[in-house]
């Protein structure tokens, strides 16, 4: 297991190296923070400062960029997490139904809904969702991640946790307020995610249902639902997770677009506001934070895949 981890990290370090080159190019071309003419030494000193975590100080509010960036990105992660949960709760059962009844009425209905979710552009849906709840009579907040009435000091950066830490002052109001602010943006993101998950689940389940051990399970006399629950689900999961890992960057970019529409203080809004006000130093920092996160989550997802799917453990020893 340890060797496996090392091998993955080694592979990903090459990607990380290329990313630092990119970030350095961006920084070198937009803001010359050093008058050094020699690009190589500039690059090494840049690498040095990155490893220490010093990305410079933002022009706008004189705070270190790294900290602001991390806090902003954690908000984006909260949004993605929430949307993920909603998407899994809704999407997986629908995908399972669609996969089991392949090419039947249920399948066609579900796939039509999923296709609509994939076809709609995410920013348009976000804009519609700013007005739709009111048109339907539901009052839901559409701006920011928490009402400005509550002043929450930044402890961990994750607002879900921070708002629970101020219970003496606000009781649970701040936390509930934050949750309601999360509902609309994560529903918009979940729309896209659900379609993806329905598609992937349906495909994975169809593939699994054709396999031999399901036929053997039939001959053991199990009911259809027992087969699905005990055998199909666990075996259908690895391809789904693998595909989602490939889609991770798309999900994050959609989340950032949604944040801009809803003024949700996440990485998308932070980048947008900084560029709008001319603070280009954040670009390289944002590049490294976001892509670093995607790299690390790739490793973690690989790990999870190995844990839940024993057949992938073969790749621990052989190169697949």
């Amino acid at each position: 297991m340890f060797n496996y981890l090392l091998r993955r990290i080694y592979l990903l370090s090459i990607t990380a190296f290329i990313l630092t080159l990119l970030a350095f190019t961006i920084e070198h071309w937009t803001v010359h923070t050093q008058i050094d003419d020699n690009t190589f030494s500039h690059y090494f000193s840049y690498l040095n400062s990155i490893i220490k975590g010093d990305f410079g100080v933002s022009i706008i509010d004189n705070q270190p960029i790294f900290n602001t960036g991390l806090v902003a990105f954690s908000s984006t992660l909260e949004l993605c997490f929430f949307a993920f949960i909603i998407a899994i709760i809704i999407g997986m059962p629908l995908g399972i139904f669609a996969g089991l009844d392949r090419n039947n009425g249920v399948d066609y209905t579900i796939m039509t809904i999923a296709l609509i979710g994939l076809a709609l552009p995410v920013f348009w849906v976000a804009i519609i969702f700013t007005i739709l709840p009111h048109a339907l009579g539901i009052t839901l907040p559409i701006d920011g991640n928490i009402s400005p009435i509550y002043e929450i000091p930044v402890v961990t950066g994750l607002l879900l946790i921070d708002s629970l830490l101020v219970t003496e002052r606000y009781q649970l109001d701040a936390f509930l307020n934050h949750l309601t602010h999360l509902i609309l943006p994560s529903t918009v993101l979940a729309l896209f995610l659900t379609s993806e998950i329905i598609r992937l689940t349906r495909h994975a389940i169809t593939m699994v249902m054709k396999s031999n051990y399901i036929k053997a399970a039939h001959t053991k006399g199990l009911t259809r639902w027992q087969i699905v629950y005990r055998h199909v689900l666990k075996n259908a999961l690895p391809p789904i997770i693998h595909q989602i890992r490939l889609q991770l960057s798309t999900i994050i970019s959609f989340a950032m677009a949604i944040e801009i529409v809803f003024s949700y203080q996440g990485a998308g809004m932070w980048l947008f506001a900084s560029i709008h006000q001319g603070d280009y130093l954040v670009l390289s920092a944002a590049l490294l934070i976001i892509s670093g996160f995607i790299l690390i989550s790739s490793i973690i997802i690989d790990f999870i895949l190995v844990l839940i799917s024993p057949s992938k453990r073969k790749s621990l020893y052989a190169d697949q």
Partner: peptide, 21 residues
């Protein structure tokens, strides 16, 4: 499927949502 009520109850949070007004 059995988590669908959970999501619907999440929507019911809107009743708990005191608008700032």
């Amino acid at each position: 499927m059995r988590f669908l009520p959970l999501y619907i109850s999440l929507l019911l949070l809107t009743a708990c949502y005191q608008t700032e007004s």
